[in-house]
Design a protein around this nucleic acid. Structure first.
Lengths: 211, 211
DNA sequence: TAGGGTAATGTAATGATGTGA
DNA sequence: ATCACATCATTACATTACCCT
């Protein structure tokens, strides 16, 4: 399995978590061929790479809270507010600026994620509604067909039909603007997905051709 | 500059390595296995907080290319491959590991963006189809109503019709449920806690007769 | 064979730097 | 100077393979 396939699996599993579960399991077993980790017994000697006591940080809880508070009020940071905040926090103004920059960048990603999940849910419900509508259309067509048959049958039993006998023909013409063929002619618009709606929802992804 | 542009730049510089040569040279001796250079390691003297001589943290073109190549083959990095790669690149294995970790994170974000746009496209087309189906349903109902009226009218002209008159009786009452759902243009963060709004709004009361 | 300890590794979050607009 | 963005790096935590009793 290459990464593109893996990517698609991820994508599909997000829409259909249940179905992807089994797949994932079989896959992970496949990958299980070789022992992934070997005991290396690296020494704990302190001569590790460049990192002794010199750098890195971790802001305190209080600092984080204050920063988040200010960020919630305003994502941008003017010089004045920066200096004031740095003073309050006991931090270098540079640090405050960096914090805000990073916070903005990561907020973007977080928001994207949230929007994705929202869109996904909305899309799923839309798909369901569409499905229901499709069945309804079929049902209505069936009923309409029955009705037309009934009308035909009734007309054969009617001897005299002097007045407006064109009511049925007028009704099928009245809606011609929206959907020209009245009956089982065109289902193509939906038939693209009718049969595989729940199997392959993403049809227009460029790199989705492997599934 | 986004990733794609950057990738292209990388490719270009691959074709014309001379252009990046000077920079590469100044850059590449950062965390050499042998810290022969100016001590950018630990340096107990606390005043050089982070950034003395090691402002050259960028990997060379060649290193990037090789890393990307390996990443393209496999996103995971086993110890073996890591050490081998580190050897080839003249980097600390730790750096290679870090590079892969960050690359995976970046890749995830990029993927999420792609997924979002794909899902959005698909969702829009689904919405369109749903809209068409709704108009079709309305049209069919109209036609059906007309047909029923016609049937009623015809029956008034027919004296005795003992045979199946029940074909049309069952068709009018089952479909009063559908109501167009609210339409959401935006999927903002504010909607996060309204998730359940989207979940199967019309599943109740509709008997599911699968095709 | 089972369970606990631990080193190695993965992921997520986050701090920090460099570059270009 | 600030910001967005990509990148490098460190820390915290979870998971897992190996070793041991």
């Amino acid at each position: 399995m290459n990464h593109y396939q893996q990517d698609q699996m991820m994508l599909i599993s997000q829409l259909f978590p249940a179905s992807a579960h089994a797949y994932t399991d079989t896959v992970s077993q496949q990958v299980e061929k070789k022992p992934r980790r070997k005991r290396n017994k690296k020494s704990k000697g302190g001569e590790n790479t460049a990192n002794e006591m010199n750098k890195k940080r971790k802001l305190s809880e209080k600092q984080m809270i204050l920063l988040e508070q200010h960020f919630g009020n305003e994502h941008k940071l003017e010089s004045e507010r920066k200096d004031k905040l740095a003073m309050e926090l006991g931090l270098d103004p540079r640090q405050v600026a960096v914090w805000f920059q990073n916070r903005r960048a990561r907020w973007k990603n977080k928001k994207l994620e949230e929007e994705y999940t929202n869109l996904k849910k909305f899309h799923e419900s839309t798909m369901l509604e569409k499905c229901l509508l499709e069945t309804e259309v079929l049902k209505l067509r069936e009923q309409l067909s029955e009705a037309e048959k009934e009308i035909q049958r009734l007309r054969e039993h009617v001897e005299v039909v002097p007045t407006n006998s064109s009511s049925t023909s007028s009704m099928s013409q009245s809606m011609e603007v929206m959907e020209p063929p009245p009956f089982f002619d065109e289902f193509e618009v939906d038939n693209v997905y009718n049969d595989n709606v729940f199997l392959m929802p993403y049809f227009n992804g460029i790199e989705w051709t492997y599934i």
